[in-house]
Design a binder for these strands. Structure first.
Lengths: 294, 294
DNA sequence: ACAAAAGTGTTAAACTTACACCCATGC
DNA sequence: GCATGGGTGTAAGTTTAACACTTTTGT
């Protein structure tokens, strides 16, 4: 009997269904930058980092807020599932959409054995068309605040443990969700590992506080490398817009002259101008697609 | 009826089994640095990047080589599953072990709907105790060669497409496995995406050529940031050892004086010396666990 | 003695950081 | 006119890159 024949026979008789299997969900942290209205005609509107959450219509965690997501269908990849969810919730089909992490803690979902392959999506807030989806769930942008509240370092023999307590606040009008997440880094001679634990969670469903914390750390660590900042902006933008995106995500002020020198090679000046503001009009730029390393 | 009661009732009546579910495999790219014997007593032994592969004992892909891996059990997280596999194959329980990517292409496994959550593991080659595991599969270190063979750039309106063809060779004695993988980067104003495709594959099971290519790119991109290089070395090492790890992974020569200045803060000098070589003995160093950013 | 690697010093160029200053607009 | 943001220049400090040179060992 040929090898091909044997393999075929094996596959025909193989039944994968005898093993217990988990369900796979994809959850997406969809971020955008939105502007608050500014009453002073001179001042620029304040930009804020926002995250899209959906109020759960059913059990479990009924009426609490969760990341958009859903179960993986047998006809699609996790990327396709994430793109489908993103499109359903925001009607945006072209966006930065990137795999982030698999969350598989036992008991993370009371419905059973469910793994989450999480994604991070960055979209231009103007382009998103957020509305209640067909299942009547409310989708809402929440302003994000994520701050280090406490840090401690423990020196053991051959090992250092760094614990950092972060407080996450998500605000929309008079609604405020909160989570306290502890990040634990363990560094030894042979390996290092990082883990997150939810200490407190108010108004957030499942382990989504943890996923959101992970996404925010991921954003901060990756905003400088790739072109992620551009994905949060429209096609044409001012250098101040771009700088503010960096400042919001890094939660840190940057010097104008230095920032401009640094990103000079990544943008292309256009002959368009931003007009109508109570100050000198600024040039509009677009991203330079041609960047050597990427 | 209280909300808690309702939630409980819901969960009791909820049956997740009605949806079709995939199996979850964890596959690990286990890397180590091994030395080739050197006949010239003066010369240092050549270090090489090695990858652990297992010959498949059964169908499908019988007798072909695959990444160590297995199915996720309902009692463990994907990290625990990966650690279990690593321990089974190498008897190493403390190592750098990190989630990499989820591969979910339809048809990636002829046995059915199987997703792979892939990991990357870095171990000190000396510590690994590789032997045929209980299921009598052969586990073997393969020397890795991964080179860019062709690159092309396509300029469209509002979009740039960069295609890079990589050739992967895996050698052990007179065995040679090969794969050609195309990396495709698409960069537009609104998003950028990167995908890999297997063009040719000889001797490698499943889509593992793709996973290996992904792992090697991941290694190259991350070796500078974190302390990954140290995880490939024993506790005490010479600065030349460390430099060679960088050189092997980046596939690029570095200047000695400059390298030493760059990593000066990350290592601690010990009073131990490497002796017995046909040249001036070198000081042994160990890693400095205390690094500001991590 | 000498091959091989260990290890250090010097310089120019590049990039980062901090700060000072002028410009243009709408009200 | 003036508040606000747009935009540029310069000098000090730091890091990188390239190269030259000295030191120490085992055989």
């Amino acid at each position: 009997m040929s090898t091909e024949k044997k393999e075929k026979d094996f596959l025909n008789s193989y039944s994968i269904s005898k093993y217990e299997k988990p369900s796979i969900a994809t959850d997406i942290a969809i971020f955008s930058i939105l502007e608050e209205v500014e009453e002073n005609y001179r001042k620029l509107p304040q930009k804020k980092l926002n995250l899209l959450l959906i109020r759960r219509g059913g059990y479990p965690y009924k009426d609490m807020w969760a990341l958009p997501g859903g179960f993986l269908e047998p006809t699609e990849t996790v990327e396709e599932a994430a793109a489908r969810e993103l499109k359903e919730e925001t009607n945006v089909s072209e966006a930065h959409l990137e795999q982030m992490h698999v969350f598989s803690d036992l008991g993370r979902d009371p419905r059973g054995w469910i793994l989450s392959t999480s994604f991070i999506a960055l979209i231009d807030g103007q382009k998103a068309d957020v509305k209640s989806s067909d299942d009547a769930a409310e989708a809402t942008w929440f302003q994000v605040s994520f701050k280090l509240a406490k840090a401690e370092k423990e020196y053991n023999e051959d090992k250092i443990i760094v614990k950092s307590l972060y407080k996450l606040y998500l605000k929309h009008q008079d609604m405020e969700l909160m989570a306290e997440i502890e990040e634990r880094k363990e560094i030894s001679n042979y390996h290092e590992q990082i883990s997150y634990q939810i200490l407190k969670s108010e108004g957030l469903a499942f382990d989504h506080g943890k996923i959101i914390a992970y996404a925010l750390q991921y954003l901060r660590q990756h905003i400088e490398n790739a072109h992620m900042a551009f994905d949060l902006l429209p096609e044409y933008f001012t250098l101040t817009d771009l700088q503010q995106v960096y400042e919001i995500i890094l939660d840190k002020e940057l010097l104008v002259a230095n920032f401009r020198r640094k990103i000079a090679g990544r943008v292309i000046e256009t002959n368009k101008n931003q007009e109508g503001a109570g100050h000198r009009p600024s040039k509009l730029y677009k991203r330079n697609l041609e960047v050597d390393n990427l």
